[in-house]
Design a protein around this nucleic acid. Structure first.
Lengths: 215, 215
DNA sequence: CAAGTTAGTGGACAACTGTTCACTCGGTTA
DNA sequence: TAACCGAGTGAACAGTTGTCCACTAACTTG
């Protein structure tokens, strides 16, 4: 069965174990562990590496967590990009939910990480994630501004609307990753509700009058 | 300064330490710790009791957590009750948000517990909390059914709407307990956004046509 | 008041934790 | 090729953890 050490160059080897550490955490999260309950040692062990080797890559579990925040939000932004283009103006909502569910299925661990750790006790990670979510919301607000109905909305109102939509998304993701893996019926039900909620929200848009610019 | 052992009867004494254990957890949560990172020993220590005494009251940290779920949702239901009565039909929304913020201020630890642990790795606690939230949502749906505009809505649609409102509440609570304690400006801003979001949501209500009963 | 019950004690246990240190040994570079 | 560098090793550390056990002493009950 040949040598099992495929990483030849030193840089390759480094990248490889680093990723093994990150993946080890994601795997344990997916298995139901809580991030703050993970020990450096268990992570190293799961990555097939001795505890001391951990420090060659991250100075602490927090640092590793921050790396995961980056990695996860790369995924989230890719999703937003997918949603941005190729959205038939009718059924924007239906397609958006489809795209969301699709991404959750494909990057389950990343979404679990964001949705779980974003509410954890760990202050530094929680704030990092909440900050990224704020950014994410702002990006969505900018996207929304392109819709004709929303063209005259104030930035403040757009943020408020984007926040509402993101809340719904987060709750949807939370429900999805909580449901058993690959349970199409449960997923479909969750998607159905999410779609209704988004439809209802958007239904209000034409009737909104901001207090701030009441003209 | 007299004797510091005010619990005379055995039952009193028991109740007293039990509550001390619960409060110790709430306090540590409020201080930023994660529930799954709390150790039985640290809790006992903070309650001023030896580790073995813990077992006289709870067989595990999970059991203690479940007790906290109960305690917390007693608070939440009290809030719902407060909101149910004495809501001037105009400004229902404004008052609801006020009541919510008021309760969060007064029972901060309980809300922190629900909002944090409801997303934690700990499966049994997470499910317990999510179950309670579902119940809570259903109660809200029932309440909503009393509003004239919603009288003809299907139960399914009412649940969907209640879910949307509860999502907004949860997000609002999350933001509030994340903000520094007693920061009126930050709180006011959060309340302002929440109110807008609820207003927007309710704005859609008169225009909603369910797919299911399209008459 | 004597016997019984029980909340809380204190010591011990093996297991696990984060971090340190001196080390090996293969890829990199001068 | 020789010196170097750095990813990963392995042993050791002091501290903490959950749980077990025999114990005490104060409240309760016959």
């Amino acid at each position: 069965m040949g040598p099992v050490r495929p990483a030849r160059t030193q840089a390759e080897r480094r990248r490889h174990t680093r990723q093994a550490l990150l993946d080890a955490v994601l795997l344990q999260l997916e298995a139901g562990e809580s991030f703050d309950a993970l020990s450096l040692r268990s992570v190293a062990r799961a990555a097939g590496v001795v505890p001391t080797a951990f420090y060659r890559h991250f100075e602490s579990m927090d640092a590793l967590g921050l790396a995961l925040v980056e990695e996860s939000f790369r995924t989230l932004r890719a999703m937003l990009r997918d949603a941005r283009e190729g959205l038939p103006p009718e059924q924007v909502i239906h397609r958006s939910v489809e795209i969301l569910m699709e991404h959750v299925r494909q990057h389950r661990a990343h979404f679990i990480f964001v949705v779980r750790v974003g509410y954890t006790g760990n202050v530094v990670l929680r704030h990092a994630i909440r900050g990224e979510i704020r950014l994410f919301t702002s990006e969505l607000a900018t996207d929304l501004a392109r819709f004709p109905v929303l063209r005259e909305w104030t930035t403040d109102d757009l943020q408020m609307l984007a926040g509402l939509l993101v809340n719904t998304m987060i709750a949807t993701v939370g429900a999805t990753v909580d449901a058993p893996v690959a349970a199409p019926a449960a997923e479909a039900e969750i998607a159905r509700v999410a779609e209704k909620q988004l439809r209802l929200t958007m239904l209000a848009v034409p009737h909104w009058r901001s207090e701030r610019s009441p003209r």
